[in-house]
C-alpha cells in the first residue's frame, strides 16, 4: 500500500497541476473553478507530504515554504478584483469588461476580472491547505532533528 503511494505521489504533482490549470481555464465554459483546482493541487501536495514526510517534501519542493506568502497574495488578488468596482464608483464585484463588451480571448481563456478572481481563489486555497498540512505534519512528526 505505502509503496504504491511512494511511487505514485511524487509523479502526481505534474498531472495535478495540468488538471488544475485546465479546470481554471475551462472554468467558464465547463465544470470547475478556482476552488476545485486548488483542492486538486492541494490533494496532490498532501499525498507528497504523506509519502515523503514533511521535511523531505519541503526540501524537494522549496516553493512550498512560500505558502503563507502565496496565500496572502491570493487573498489580496481576490480582494483587489472584487473591490476594484467601488474605487471607480461601481458596486463591488462588478465584472469587467461589462456584459456585451468585447473580450480578449486566448484560446478558450477569456480575460475577464472574474477569471482573475478565480485565480486568486486558486492560489489562496492551495496555499492555505499547504499551511495547514505543514503545521499538522510538524505537530504529528515533530520538529527538525
Amino acid at each position: 500500500m505505502s509503496s504504491i503511494i511512494g511511487v505514485v505521489a511524487p509523479r502526481l504533482l505534474g498531472p495535478a497541476l495540468i488538471l488544475a490549470a485546465a479546470i481554471i481555464v475551462k472554468g467558464y465554459a465547463d465544470v470547475g473553478d478556482g476552488f476545485s483546482a486548488g483542492v486538486i493541487v492541494a490533494t496532490a501536495l498532501a499525498l507528497r507530504y504523506v509519502s515523503l514526510g514533511w521535511e523531505l517534501a519541503e526540501r524537494s519542493l522549496p516553493v512550498l515554504r512560500r505558502a503563507p506568502q502565496v496565500a496572502t497574495a491570493g487573498l489580496l488578488i481576490a480582494l483587489a478584483t472584487g473591490f476594484a468596482g467601488p474605487l471607480v464608483g461601481d458596486p463591488p464585484f462588478t465584472h469587467y469588461p461589462r456584459a456585451g463588451e468585447s473580450v480578449i480571448h486566448i484560446g478558450t481563456l477569456e480575460l475577464i476580472t472574474a477569471v482573475v478572481f478565480d485565480l486568486g481563489l486558486f492560489l489562496f486555497v492551495t496555499a492555505a491547505f499547504v499551511v495547514l498540512i505543514h503545521h499538522l505534519a510538524r505537530l504529528a512528526q515533530g520538529g527538525p532533528r
Binding site: 467558464y28 465547463d30 465544470v31 472584487g82 463591488p92 478565480d118
Partner: peptide, 17 residues
C-alpha cells in the same frame, strides 16, 4: 457573464462577494 457553467459563474461573479 461570458460563461456557460452556471455554478462557476455564480461562485466567481454573481455571488463573488
Amino acid at each position: 457573464a461570458h460563461g456557460s457553467d452556471v455554478v462557476t459563474v455564480i461562485l466567481a461573479d454573481f455571488r463573488g462577494l
